[in-house]
Design a protein around this nucleic acid. Sequence first.
DNA 1: CGGATTGTTGAGGATACTCAAGTTAGGTGG
DNA 2: CCACCTAACTTGAGTATCCTCAACAATCCG
Lengths: 234, 234
Amino acid sequence: MLDRTLIRDLALFARLDDAALDDVLSEAGSQRYAAGDVVFEQGEIAERFFVLLHGRLRVTQMTSEGQQIVIRMVAPGDLFGIARVMQRPDYPGTATAVLESVALAWPMSAWSTVVDGHPAFAVNAMQIMGERLQEAQLRIREFSTEAVERRVGHAVLRLARQSGYPEDDGVRIDFPISKQDIAEMTGTTLHTVSRILTAWEAAGLVSTGRQKLLVRNPHHLLLIADGVEAALAK
Amino acid sequence: MLDRTLIRDLALFARLDDAALDDVLSEAGSQRYAAGDVVFEQGEIAERFFVLLHGRLRVTQMTSEGQQIVIRMVAPGDLFGIARVMQRPDYPGTATAVLESVALAWPMSAWSTVVDGHPAFAVNAMQIMGERLQEAQLRIREFSTEAVERRVGHAVLRLARQSGYPEDDGVRIDFPISKQDIAEMTGTTLHTVSRILTAWEAAGLVSTGRQKLLVRNPHHLLLIADGVEAALAK
DNA sequence: CGGATTGTTGAGGATACTCAAGTTAGGTGG
DNA sequence: CCACCTAACTTGAGTATCCTCAACAATCCG
């Protein structure tokens, strides 16, 4: 049996008492994934849903023409693989560990059991869906109204917020991330990302390396992402 | 007191019995809006949530730089204005009637009452949020991977599916929609939309007029939207 | 050390934007 | 009912952004 302290502090399980937590955990199993391992694949029948405890995942989608896009990065505490809640039999994307990761997994059937048995859980889950929906709408707005450089700026800042830890001279993105990844988050090409980051590097805003990214001046970067920079140039 | 037959067939109220429907309706009021009326405005404190019974609404968002985008069109049966569920005190967008419309309105406080009192409602609401989230992710994928013409194609087809009624020689979009509206749905300019639609008109795919749109050949349009056309040209 | 993955940089070109000048449709008021 | 006014739309010209194609360099891993 898993220990309830594993999940006690997660938003999804807020306001559940110890008995409820134990009840929920009784149906869960824990899984370990090495960096590079695939948790589930796009199109696969969605038999389980997950909560990430440790590590970091990348959720991608492949279009029919073979173009890949990054849907989101999953951080510890996040719920993922909830295809069934969205009325889908299969996973709409592929989840890959980018760091050594640990996740709790429940059979999809447990979803209704848990929702029915614990009203607070349903409320929490709805809140999380609401946050996701807001986030998605924000990205749509970025795509609709911002040129590439600003979108890349917002993506980098989002990464720093979600997965950054402070270092001597900036905020380090704490998992390996390639220019290709950033391109797939922002709807551009790795070439354009490379050029933009090179320019930012020259301006002292970031430091980049092979799958490495350090944000040195988040404040200035925010000005670029919000279009202040471009407005001043006029 | 409103009649329960108004809402009995809506997805949001599926699997609620008559007593429950009456209970839910007891807190609701019905509102009428003329074409052009604003139901709620971006930034306003979200005091109510709504279900559209008749008509059609356009939900828009204004960016800090004054650019407007169309978030979605609301069709009869749709839930809208649920900011609170997303943990927001205010409405993130503005809802405007584009046709004479009728909506049911509940005080936001009724949300928790209804969710708590009727577990089936919570499940339905979650499903709806899931569908929205999927829809949003689809749009993100379109923005990431498709050029303007394909995005406009998908937007027009979506409109035809959601708000089209069959006419002699095609599917008519049943509310006034401008090129500017389509531009704001697809992240382009009205100029580009105008050029694209003119080209499609010449090819017999659509007929356009001032705030009018008739899809004459959805099948061919789908080929364009899915990129088959462009692929063949190579 | 060799191969593979990741990243850099340049040149050229297409797409779609901006700017600009008009036209058309529809509603309003005299 | 007609003249006018405005909002919606069309079309052209010029151009910026960003993509594609291409070649090469750096880094990592086994």
